[in-house]
Design a protein around this nucleic acid. Structure first.
Lengths: 168, 168
DNA sequence: TATTGTTATACTCTATAACTATA
DNA sequence: TATAGTTATAGAGTATAACAATA
């Protein structure tokens, strides 16, 4: 029942924040376990994914796409290279640039972890039963809406300024 | 349209992780703006909420409820006291213990920020229109399910171990 | 001079442990 | 001895800036 749940919510954040946080915490914990052995964790997987793609581009381009700092990228790629999952290939057209390429082992590990993540997603959403797809769809729509309109900075900043400006 | 959205998703995490992350990122950014002036941000609000409650208990009890480390709690309360939102009252029954009490200003700020957060939630979920409540409900159910069964460590750890164990 | 990638430094958070005053 | 709260120290993570090689 939701009795225990009510107790957890009482006096804390508002409903949405609490639920969103709880779900994400659970998801993150599960993903961390799946990616525990992979250097760089989630970001390591992102870089590996980019390196496994057809035209990954150089290190800086990948970093830019993923929103990772260039200096952090260096350490991240270092670890992936050490693990034998990625190599830094010289770019014939620009000798400053290094192109990231996934090794055979990199491709194999990537496939494995992606399958494991898919299983985790299924597992995470299991409590919702048939309505799991509904949640996926709603979240997807919301996320896409943010992309086209980056959270309407105007609106949010207004809300942040005054306490309770325009009600609906 | 979802064209731009597709581009963002391609080659990154799986759908759920990406959508969940994007939504949470947007939410966190908005909340941070709303709580920018409040010492301690989100956790500051949690502590303030507890201090404004009827029987908040001593510092350690509040820290335990909120999952905040005792040492972090000290700094957090220090800042709230400096801001004049909370006071440390001596506990008559135990001179080691300090009871957290929200000041008049603390109550006022708390009410303001809670209203502002409610507005942000409405704003954040606006793209979903009438289906916003559906998302709230689904997330709530999921979060509550995790509370009763803390993400079935057995199941997740199995999934983490092998790459692709039991396909449904 | 600008850019790619690396390295070095500093700052923020958090975690651990030591300390005090009470019990 | 154990507990409530504080303080001090160390670590991970990140950001800033300086650097070498190339354009």
């Amino acid at each position: 029942m939701s009795g225990d749940c009510e107790a957890a919510r009482r006096g804390l954040d508002d409903d949405l924040g609490w639920a969103l946080g709880a779900v994400l915490r659970g998801y993150v914990r599960a993903v961390e376990q799946v990616l525990a052995q992979l250097p760089g964790g989630t970001r390591g997987l992102q870089v590996l994914t980019a390196a496994a793609g057809p035209a990954s581009g150089n290190q800086g381009a990948v970093a830019g796409q993923l929103g990772i700092d260039r200096t952090v990228m260096t350490y991240l790629v270092d670890d992936l290279v050490t693990a034998g999952l990625v190599t830094r290939e010289p770019d014939p057209g620009d000798r400053r640039s290094r192109v990231l390429v996934a090794t055979t082992a990199g491709h194999r590990v990537l496939d494995e972890r992606r399958r494991a993540l898919a299983d985790v997603e299924t597992h995470i959403l299991a409590p919702l039963g048939a309505e799991a797809d509904q949640l996926r769809s709603l979240l997807q729509r919301l996320a896409c809406a943010y992309r086209s309109e980056p959270l309407t900075c105007s609106g949010v900043e207004e809300l942040a300024a005054h306490g309770h400006s325009s009600t609906t």
